[in-house]
């Protein structure tokens, strides 16, 4: 696996420390990032202003008036050595979320493409996509966008060459090994397999999305009639 190598630490802009954990995006890599992410949150929270996990790296924001970037970078390296042998499952809150999805048709305009790409029937692609347990890798890109992995290699189609200008909130997409849900309407280049009626991101709540890195996500196929019934239910209030 590509994750066991030395950390690359970059001090950026006078208030960010960037830690490059691995070179390729994978669930193994995500687990290494989560170890560091949750360890930083529990051990260094009084020395930093924000910690942002990515898909293969982490950004740590700090106030240089309170801590020097040099000493913080050192503490992060020490913490990395310490947390490498921690069992990541002990750090997770291990929450489970079920996300109902209408697959195909206008809800998943790329299901047909993925079926052709994988040489499988559309039903089979739906079965494969919805029969896995996914782990949340991170959130980001736009408010409430959830990156999850890993997708079964047989349906891991590449992203669109030209991104769409507008994708409806709740759209579920595939991009290589990752699957994701768009929290808000936005542009995007993932292959869309379906859409959830749940409200994934509601900025009037705090937190506006209850999902965290390491949580488990299951997709449940539903039909268009269920879609109207479930429309607008907050993801944190839906129990499947």
């Amino acid at each position: 696996m590509s994750t066991r190598r030395d950390l690359r630490v970059v001090r950026s802009g006078g208030y960010v420390i960037h830690v490059d954990v691995c070179e390729e995006v994978s669930l193994d890599c995500a687990r290494e990032i989560h170890k560091l992410y949750y360890s930083i949150k529990s051990e260094l929270s009084n020395q930093i202003t924000e910690v942002v996990p990515g898909v293969s790296s982490i950004a740590i924001h700090y106030d240089p008036r309170k801590v020097s970037g040099e000493s913080l970078a050192r503490r992060i390296r020490d913490l990395w050595l310490w947390c490498r042998d921690v069992d990541v499952e002990d750090l997770y809150r291990s929450r489970k979320f079920t996300i109902p999805v209408v697959y195909g048709g206008e809800f998943g305009p790329d299901l047909q493409f993925i079926a052709a790409w994988s040489k499988l029937a559309e039903d089979e692609v739906v079965r494969i996509h919805s029969s896995r347990r996914y782990t949340v890798i991170t959130l980001g890109f736009t408010p409430g966008f959830v990156y999850m992995g890993e997708v079964d290699p047989s349906i891991a189609a590449p992203r669109l060459e030209t991104p769409r200008v507008k994708i409806p909130a709740g759209s579920v997409g595939v991009a290589g090994k990752m699957t994701g849900v768009y929290g808000l309407e936005s542009p995007g280049g993932w292959r869309l397999v379906g859409r959830t009626p749940l409200t994934m991101f509601d900025y009037r709540r705090n937190p506006p999305i209850p999902i965290s890195p390491g949580d488990e996500v299951y997709f449940k196929p539903i039909d268009a009639a269920d879609f109207s019934k479930l429309l607008g239910i907050f993801v944190g209030d839906y129990s499947g």
Partner: peptide, 10 residues
């Protein structure tokens, strides 16, 4: 709106 980058909020 500092503090919500980890949720994807600019």
């Amino acid at each position: 709106r500092d503090g919500y980058r980890a949720l994807g909020v600019p």
